Each structure stands twice: as structure tokens, then as C-alpha cells.
Simulated assay, not measured.
Amino acid sequence: MAIVLGPNRYGKAETRLVRVSRDGDTHSLADFNVGIALSGDLAATHLTGDNSGVLPTDTMKNTVYAFAKKHGVGEPEEFALLLARHFVATNGQIESARVSIESFGWERLGPHSFQRKGDCTRLASVVVTAEQTQVVSGLTGLVLLNSTASEFHGFPRDRYTTLPETTDRILATAVDAKWRHMSPTADFAKSFAGVLEAVTTAFVNTYSYSLQQTLFSMGSHALHQRPEIAEIRLELPNKHHYLVDLSLFDMANDNEVFIAGDRPYGLIEGTVVRDDAPPALAEWYL
């Protein structure tokens, strides 16, 4: 039996970067969490401890800060592309660089005062090889709720099924979405705002018979509205709300008082794809 080294990569995780751009008395703020992962001809360090091809992860961290000063950061996709292309171009042993960024939003309160936004976190992830470049954008933690216009019934039942059917329920979720761009060039700020608006609008306007149906509606609307998007993957936890039994207090509860459940919860996942989308690199949504 032979034992061999399988796929591997290494890098620097969670490099926290805050970049202040000073334009006179009015400042702007970028707040990033940067992850870098490199792969390529790295067998020697695993098999013999030869580190001659191992760029230190501390160097990766320093590159983030140096590039933020030298080039600015721009949109998170743009900064990720800048870093990934640099690592592939300057390290002959590296075949692929993945740079992922969480971008935390801040709302302006004054020329140099800001308040942290809490609606969702913007995501960006790029993969660069000598032959290909792939850009994925996304968001996480977008909490949405419809207080009606949602049903769930007609499902199979077995001896362990206790869930009652309903024709009027709260539908709530915390959206995680990632979408792959058709090409590595786009107006990423406009694209992000457009996808955010599209998935939110679809959630609001879809009369839902299942969260799966709502997922497809959200993904389809995003692709219809944003031609630069090749495909979108959505993860929608079902944030259950349970009707409180008030009969012990001689009170009726006409879908008004609920317990917001924590766990366990249903998790609905799916990808909506444009039929003319170019092929993706493997595991693009990770």
C-alpha cells in the first residue's frame, strides 16, 4: 500500500485591515478581514521539511498592509485580485492563489465619523492561476422575515411526523449567498448592490409554499436582473417561529404571539445557474 500526499494549501487567515482614505476633512473607511491560501509545488515541505518553496505566511500578512498603503483597497474584489495575481506572478512554485475577504460596512455619520452597519457582511473571493481567474462575490447574515404569505403543507408523513400543516406562517431566514461572475471584470460595487436588491425583492414578493421555492425565486431574480452573474448559491436557514399556546390563559392566539426558535433549524441550500455560464473552477462557492 502506498501513502501519498493529497491536495494541500497554506496561507494566512484573518488578517484584519482597516484603511482610512483621507480626502481633506472628509474620510472614507474600508474594514476587511483577509484570508490567503496558496497551493502548488509544496510537496517538499510536507515530505522532508524543505521550506525553500514556502513563502512565510507572515510575508503574506505584510503584503496585505503594504498593498493597502501603496495601491489603496477599492472594492474587496479588486483588492483580492491584486493580491492573488501578485502571489502567483512572484512565486514560481505557486500554481493557484485564493484570496477571500469579508468586508464590514460602516455608515457615515459625519466627515470622519462612522457607525458600523449590522444588516449583513459583504464577501469576496478570487482564485488566480496562470490560466484562469475567477471572482466570487457574496454576503452573509442578511436577516429577512415575512410575517405572512407563507404556507407549508402537502408533505409526506410517517410515524415520526408531528409537524402540523399550515397555510399561514412566519417565514424568516438569515441569507448566505455567493455568486460567480461571468468574467473577472465588473463594476463590483454596482453588482453587489444589484444582487442584494434582487434577492431582497424576490423574498418580499414571493408567496411561498416552501423555503425551497423562495430560494429558487431569489436566485432566478438575481440572474435576470444581473447579466454579469453566472450562477448564485444560497443557503437559507429556516428561522422557525412557534405559535405560543395561550389556551391555558383562556386567550386565543391568532398568529400574533410566537417563540423565536434558535436550534435545531431547517437548512435549505441550492444553486441557480445560467445555462450559458462558463465553466467554474472546482468548489467555487467555498
Rank of each mutant, 00 (worst) to 15 (best):
L5Q: 09
P7M: 07
R9L: 15
R19K: 14
V20I: 08
S21E: 14
G24P: 05
H27Q: 09
L29Q: 01
A30V: 13
A30I: 07
D41R: 14
D41L: 12
L42F: 05
A43Q: 13
A44K: 08
A44Q: 12
T45E: 05
L47A: 11
V54W: 07
L55S: 01
V64Y: 05
A66F: 09
A68T: 03
K69D: 11
K70A: 14
K70G: 02
K70T: 13
H71C: 03
H71M: 05
G72T: 03
G74K: 03
F79N: 07
A84C: 06
F87H: 01
V88G: 00
N91I: 13
N91A: 08
G92W: 03
I94G: 03
S100E: 12
I101K: 00
S103P: 01
G105K: 00
E107I: 09
R108A: 07
L109R: 04
Q115Y: 00
R116H: 05
R116K: 10
G118W: 08
C120E: 04
L123S: 05
V127T: 14
V128R: 00
V128E: 01
T129F: 03
A130H: 09
E131S: 15
Q132L: 08
Q132F: 11
V135W: 01
V135P: 08
V135K: 09
V136M: 02
G141L: 07
V143C: 12
L144M: 14
S147T: 15
T148E: 13
A149N: 11
S150Y: 10
E151A: 14
F152W: 10
H153C: 11
P156S: 08
P156R: 06
D158F: 04
D158I: 12
L163I: 05
P164M: 07
T166I: 02
D168T: 05
I170K: 02
A172Y: 08
V175N: 10
W179C: 03
W179F: 08
R180I: 13
R180W: 14
A186G: 07
E197P: 00
A202Q: 04
S210N: 11
L211P: 15
Q213V: 09
S220H: 14
L223M: 05
R226Y: 01
E228N: 05
I229W: 02
E231D: 10
I232E: 04
P237V: 10
N238M: 11
H240V: 09
L248D: 10
L248F: 02
M251G: 03
F258G: 08
I259M: 06
I259S: 02
A260C: 09
I268T: 15
V273A: 02
V273L: 03
A277P: 04
A280G: 12
L281V: 13
Y285E: 09
